[in-house]
Computed example of a mutant assay.
Amino acid sequence: MARTQRRELEVELAEQYAQLPRRPRNRQRLVTLIVFAAIAVLVGLYGLLVLLPSPAQTPIAGVAVGKAAPNFTLPILGGANSTGPITLQALRGHPVVVNFWSESCIPCRAEVPYLQRIYAQYASHGEFTLLGINQADPREDIATFGRQFKVTYPLLFDKDSAVNTAYGITAVPTTYFINGNGIVRAVSITQLTPTLMKQGLAAVGINIPA
């Protein structure tokens, strides 16, 4: 009797097991493939993040505030009437604003009218000297640019980029404010605004309205 009951129980359990839902083998295989694919994607993304260069950093001035401004002698190709070269050291005794620019630089072009206005109001009267330095454009384009924007401050040409290198120029416009002793007192690595110009000139002892 016990044997018969046990046999019946085994049959019943077997039937119940047979009725349990089965996951198709194809579905199991698909799930496995999806899992492995997801792992591969995650590994690939991790490797990509590791190998990619870090985000671009904000340009840093090559000559720190408080350091002596590197001397240079460059020819005038536009702006001023003079055709002789300008030497920075010869301008000692007066503050100098050195603006690095390029004709193809939109912020550079946008700030030129403001620079010209400030130059006409203050620099042309001897309060400070404003110099524009270009190294990226053809020589003839610099003179044309000066005429187009009616620039009267000297536009200098850094033919071999030696001055740009000495000042660590990595982006334009970049503007250095140098005091009468030839020391860098402020640097702007963006388009000059009235506020930035006022702050830069104040750093070299020139006060102008905002």
Rank of each mutant, 00 (worst) to 15 (best):
A2I: 08
V11P: 01
E12C: 02
A18V: 02
L20H: 07
P24Q: 09
Q28G: 12
L30P: 06
V31L: 13
L33W: 00
I34W: 11
V35M: 12
A37C: 11
I39K: 11
V41F: 01
L49D: 13
S54Q: 12
Q57K: 07
I60T: 14
V63W: 06
A64M: 04
G66W: 08
A68L: 06
A69N: 03
A69Y: 01
T73K: 03
G78L: 03
S82R: 09
T83Y: 02
G84F: 05
I86V: 15
L88Q: 05
L88H: 06
Q89I: 00
A90D: 14
A90N: 13
L91H: 08
G93R: 00
H94Y: 05
P95D: 00
V98Y: 03
F100E: 04
W101G: 15
W101M: 14
S102F: 09
C105H: 08
R109N: 05
R109K: 07
R109I: 04
R109C: 00
A110C: 05
E111C: 10
E111P: 13
V112K: 04
Y114E: 07
L115P: 07
Q116R: 10
R117N: 14
Y122Q: 14
S124R: 10
G126T: 00
E127A: 11
L131I: 01
I133H: 10
N134I: 05
Q135V: 00
A136S: 14
D137V: 09
P138G: 09
P138V: 07
R139Y: 09
D141M: 12
T144V: 02
F145M: 07
R147F: 04
F149C: 08
K150D: 08
V151C: 01
L155R: 03
L155C: 05
D158M: 03
D160P: 11
D160R: 14
A162D: 04
V163F: 11
N164L: 15
I169W: 05
P173R: 03
Y176M: 08
F177R: 02
I178D: 04
G182F: 06
V184I: 02
A186T: 13
A186V: 11
I189M: 06
T190H: 06
Q191R: 13
Q191T: 11
T195H: 11
M197G: 01
G200A: 05
G200L: 08
I206W: 10
N207S: 15
P209D: 07
P209L: 03
